[in-house]
Design a protein around this nucleic acid. Structure first.
Length: 204
DNA sequence: CCACGGATTGGCT
DNA sequence: GCCAATCCGTGGA
């Protein structure tokens, strides 16, 4: 459960590259959240890319608004949005300033602070095997498990509260490319990426 | 196992 | 007023 890997924090240069490159390379990286001395972390296993310039499903497709303004900044900031009256979702902003591109973190595999995540998700300490694998297998679940909310909107991922740790790239053979989930526009873009055979992926 | 629908806030038309 | 980058419970096969 404790990672033995030596890992360094990803810097601005990682994020300011092209959307789909960053999306695929985010797979396998460790998302870390530090708050009140607690460390919660997990390995990213599923993502989706969004690009307001050509993609009607992207929140930036309509141009800059108060809600999406962070997506127009340079890569490496956190875009958190609220949806369906209930859920928060986390995105990593990518590319140069003005692009309006970001990657939705759809699922992680818990690494550190699993007990806290269980409490955040289910309000109790003991869970069934089914609940264990249901912990962080969806974008809303990831935010609930890590207690990521509106107040984390715009966080700088090169800072020390929420950031990513570098890990070796996932081999292309182990990355599944698929259509995105839960949207009604631009449904055919193959912009969902996930790690093959991972149990925490929201849907195969 | 799969399909369906309700919950519930806030952003945009 | 409409509807969403979701989740969960219910009900039927």
């Amino acid at each position: 459960m404790n990672p033995k890997f030596k890992a360094k924090k990803l810097g601005r240069d990682f994020y300011t590259r092209e959307l789909l490159t960053v999306a695929k390379e985010l797979l396998g990286k460790i998302l870390v959240k530090k708050e009140k001395g607690k460390i919660l972390s997990g390995r990213i296993v599923e993502v989706e890319a969004y690009d307001g310039s050509i993609d009607e499903a992207a929140h930036t497709y309509i141009g800059k608004t108060k809600r999406n303004e962070i997506m127009f900044r340079a890569g490496g900031f956190l875009y958190v949005y609220f949806t369906y009256g209930a859920h928060f979702c986390s995105n990593v902003v990518t590319g140069d300033e003005g692009k309006g591109t970001a990657v939705l973190i759809r699922a992680i595999e818990p690494v550190e602070g699993i007990e806290v995540m269980v409490k955040n998700r289910y309000g109790k300490n003991l869970v069934s095997e089914k609940e264990r694998y249901n912990l962080t297998s969806g974008p809303g679940k990831v935010c609930q498990a890590l207690s990521i909310t509106k107040k984390h909107y715009g966080y700088d991922l090169t800072g020390d509260k929420i950031f990513l740790l570098d890990q070796p790239m996932i081999k292309p053979d182990d990355i599944v490319v698929a259509k995105r989930i839960g949207i009604k526009k631009s449904v055919d873009l193959p912009w969902r990426f996930y790690i093959k055979d991972n149990r925490y992926v929201s849907r195969k």
